[in-house]
């Protein structure tokens, strides 16, 4: 596994995503969701909203890194707020 060059932060990052996927799968089995129409212009399930949140978070970070020199945690906070609102009202 040496060639994969693992580091602690990336390992934690992937572990978190893996955990979220497992949680969503279990939630779906226990507590299935129906697609609903919220603020977004398309009907989404919980998994869809999670994916949209992740993608949006990635682009918020990219935009932040590209256009500002400030600390990255600002982008992370914006992403978290965005993700929460997407999951709740999206």
């Amino acid at each position: 596994m040496g060639w994969m060059a693992w580091t602690l932060p990336t390992a934690l990052f992937f572990a978190a995503i893996g955990l979220a996927l497992v949680t969503l799968t279990v939630l779906e089995l226990v507590w299935p969701t129906a697609a609903r129409r919220g603020l977004l212009p398309l009907s989404t399930t919980r998994g869809d909203r999670f994916f949209i949140s992740l993608l949006a978070a990635a682009f918020v970070h990219v935009g932040f890194l590209g256009f500002s020199d400030g600390p990255v945690w600002i982008a992370s906070i914006i992403s978290c707020l965005l993700a929460i609102s997407l999951m709740r009202w999206g």
Binding site: G2, W3, M4, A5, T7, T10, F14
Partner: peptide, 20 residues
């Protein structure tokens, strides 16, 4: 893809010398 993400946060000189 995981490997690419791992590489992208490090400066890699050779298999054993890498800096986060």
């Amino acid at each position: 893809l995981m490997t690419v993400v791992n590489y992208s946060v490090q400066d890699i000189f050779d298999a054993n010398t890498r800096i986060f």
